[in-house]
Computed example of a mutant assay.
Amino acid sequence: MFTGIITDVGEVLEQKAIPAGQRIRIATHFDPETIALGASIACNGVCHTVVATGTLDAERNYFEVESGKETLDLTNASGWKAGTAINLERSLKMGDELGGHLVLGHVDGVAEVVERADHPDSVFFKLRAPGQLARFIPQKGSVSLDGTSLTVNDVDGDDFTIFLIPHTLTHTAWKEKQVGDKINLEVDMMARYVARLNEYTPS
């Protein structure tokens, strides 16, 4: 379980194919001594299991994760390569402050950036959601985009908009996002449950 509050921006150091999919080494400022093997870290919003950790130099450490075929098919993990910036969040502990919204780390699909406009105090993004997911994205609702908890500004069909403040741009990988980029989308779990309940007709 996560909150969508990004606590580090990692960098992909190495990507290699394995029989199950791919294995990625990610540079991080997280202390490897505090990361147990088998721990969960959200990488661009995708919950991954840590399979190795280590130290790179005086400033940076690393951890490694593996992505299976389903993850590669449903998320933007298949496009990660050396140099890719990755939003990182460690799993929520009981008693931690819930600053964003509850995020499972189970990405539903991939949205596409269709417009970006930079303003002095914010950056506007318009994204296009897959049709089957758009109905779960309400105006002023919460979404997780590449692991970042964000508030939806407007909705128009499959398109929705967000505004990012300078702090978010500075402390996440969003500053690099451009038109055409694919973004991991996890809809709010409450919206999904409400929609499912509305479909249910007692017999």
Rank of each mutant, 00 (worst) to 15 (best):
F2W: 10
T3M: 07
I6R: 10
D8R: 03
V9K: 07
G10N: 12
E11R: 14
E14G: 01
I18W: 04
A20R: 13
G21I: 09
R23I: 09
A27W: 00
H29Q: 09
F30L: 08
D31S: 12
P32H: 07
A36L: 07
A36P: 00
S40Y: 01
I41M: 02
C47W: 01
H48A: 10
T49S: 02
G54K: 04
G54F: 02
G54P: 10
R60Y: 08
Y62R: 00
F63Y: 14
E64R: 01
E64I: 03
L72C: 00
N76Q: 11
A77Q: 12
G79M: 02
G79S: 12
K81D: 09
G83W: 11
E89Y: 03
R90S: 07
G95I: 05
D96F: 05
G99V: 03
G100K: 06
G100T: 08
G100F: 03
L102E: 04
V103M: 12
L104Q: 15
G105H: 09
G109F: 06
A111V: 13
V114H: 08
V114N: 10
E115S: 08
D118K: 03
F125R: 04
R128M: 02
G131L: 12
A134P: 09
I137A: 06
P138N: 07
L145G: 03
L150D: 09
T151P: 09
V152I: 14
D154H: 09
D158H: 12
L164P: 10
I165L: 05
H167A: 10
L169S: 04
T170V: 05
T170D: 15
W174V: 03
V179M: 06
V179N: 04
I183L: 03
E186L: 05
M190Q: 13
R192S: 11
R196A: 13
L197R: 10
E199W: 01
Y200P: 06
P202H: 08
